[in-house]
Design a protein around this nucleic acid. Structure first.
Lengths: 332, 332
DNA sequence: GTGAAAGCGCTAACAG
DNA sequence: CTGTTAGCGCTTTCAC
């Protein structure tokens, strides 16, 4: 049957050297040019592939990168993951993927799994709050947060989009269009953005117009529909993610609200379908892929100083889902 | 500093038993109720987590599941991956994700990486053809294909959507609407579907109306635009995936073709935005998530017989992107 | 510059 | 039922 895999020992014997030498040569250590040559040749001939299993055990950690995202189904996280994969690939590191569903418990479970696997580095879009992460962060699991940081932990390495600027830009755009009653339709873990929203809107904020969904599509739709029904006086919505935006469009349509005539809509995250939508959606584009790539770079570089992370720019892409506030939406 | 991790030896000593006993207890082997109790208690107290590193090396394989998809950014593969993750999670197995970009070379590279990691099971959406997979399939890497099989290998374990029925249904629908010049806009590795398309269309097939893009959005758009420009006489398009569908909508719009008045469109794969599109897209829904879940089940069950795989149903979801063939589209 | 040897943490014989 | 022991494949002192 399947013949035993070629090990470092086989190579050593075939090359007439000790295993240590083979190891050294293969990991770029010192060796006489002549020996190196011979080892390399033999290794090639034998089609030797060093086993990560042995190395991992010896070094008590598996080189791989853990990646924890709320939902791989969400285009934003898909693109982010793609960025991580791209960087990991160029570093030859495997990526272990886990979906947390934005649930701190599942998140903890996945972290446990990574630890068990001996994974030494992790990129996470955190759902749990700061305290929950406290223990993990001192486990020796080098962590870089992406897209957001655990509530109440501003001092951790992270790669973020400039939400604050993004929100401000969107709000300015909307208020510039004459809107006053602007709602924020948010998802889990968007404290930062809400804060920015409050700040940008100043005295105009209406607490009742700040609504939050959990991670799912259903939840997003429910939140959107509830908001729109409850407050027929609002004229604009800022949706904090593509799922929320989708929900808003659907809910508006269901309630016979015309976008943008009756309701202006700005969505966080630019997705391909934003352009195909009727009307095309005005969005705040985020460099999802870059976020992932940069996070991977950071976590691979390891604890190399740099406690503070990276802030990536967002961009308002104006399409057709916003209009000047009109008198159109009759209060019932 | 960071204290040494708790090992099985620590537990053994603390419980006053041998390491083997601890190992047995933890993996459900035989042990006196009393001993078992004691070991479990101690293990809990010490917060012992068995290291996958040790186990993997010993068993010469890491339990994890490798998952190779063309593009994590594509909603279809995102959902498929989600299914795999769900199943893997319930089995407590880690999933190592790789993006192949539908490139046989990258695919081979990723397989190599998995092998190096000692991964014993893999789920793949293959891009390379049968011969390329030949060596891999006898490496002891238990493989289940998902969504499609390598060209020229019908005898491998796989979980597929019933493309044939899906295509037939769509074609029947379109021909029933009066369409005769129907194009197929395909992606990589869609031999099966094209065959079904030919079969369903019978004498109506026009080889010039079978066009293929590579995996990327750009490529899809180019193919779609090229097709539409080159053959203004076609009245319907079947797009073999959501990227292709998106491209078709965009290209049609660019050429001022109105869907469905000038052009009927059916897209493989139901995505949330299909409903938001103007007009809403008629699609052939595929159970992406299920495909992933079932594939994971299969690969976890291992070589447990069942060389042939699973065929999952598709469903035609009629929305608004198809109309009876009219006289509308003037031949320029 | 190179080899011998000692494990990393775990499981699977093999004895008791 | 349970303890002892021998490695899994690799890296890393430590002598030579």
């Amino acid at each position: 049957m399947s013949m035993r895999r070629t090990t470092i020992k086989d190579v050593a014997e075939a090359a007439g050297v000790g295993v240590a030498t083979v190891s050294r040569v293969l990991s770029g250590g010192s060796a006489s040019p002549e020996t190196r040559e011979r080892v390399l040749t033999v290794a090639t001939q034998l089609d030797y592939r060093p086993s990560a299993l042995g190395r991992n055990l010896r070094q008590r950690r598996s080189g791989g990168i853990g990646l924890l995202v709320p939902d791989v189904t969400d285009s934003f996280y898909g693109r982010l993951a793609d960025g991580v994969l791209a960087c990991a690939r160029s570093a030859g590191e495997p990526v272990i993927l886990g979906a947390t569903g934005d649930d701190p418990e599942r998140e903890a479970e996945m972290v446990g799994m990574l630890l068990e696997q001996g994974v030494g580095r992790m990129i996470a879009i955190p759902s749990g709050s700061g305290e929950i992460w406290e223990p993990t962060l001192r486990t020796g699991l080098t962590t870089v947060f992406a897209h957001r940081v655990p509530a109440g932990r501003g001092d951790v390495p992270a790669v973020l989009a400039d939400d604050r600027a993004g929100v401000r830009t969107a709000v300015d755009y909307l208020t510039g269009l004459g809107h006053r009653r602007i709602a924020y339709l948010g998802g889990p873990g968007q404290e930062q953005r809400v804060a920015a929203f409050r700040e940008a809107l100043g005295p105009l904020v209406d607490e009742e117009l700040l609504v939050f969904a959990r991670g799912s599509r259903d939840s997003a739709y429910a939140a959107a529909a509830g908001l729109l029904q409850r407050r027929p006086d609002l004229t604009a919505v800022l949706a904090g993610g593509n799922l929320l935006g989708e929900a808003a469009v659907l809910a508006a349509r269901e309630l016979d609200l015309r976008v943008p005539r009756d309701l202006s809509l700005v969505m966080f995250d630019d997705v391909p379908w934003a352009e195909l939508c009727a009307p095309p959606l005005t969005v705040i584009a985020q460099p999802a892929q870059d976020i992932g790539y940069r996070a991977a770079e950071l976590v691979l570089r390891g604890g190399g100083r740099r406690p503070r992370g990276v802030l990536l720019p967002t961009e308002l892409v104006v399409r057709g889902s916003c209009a000047p506030r009109g008198t159109s939406r009759s209060p019932r």
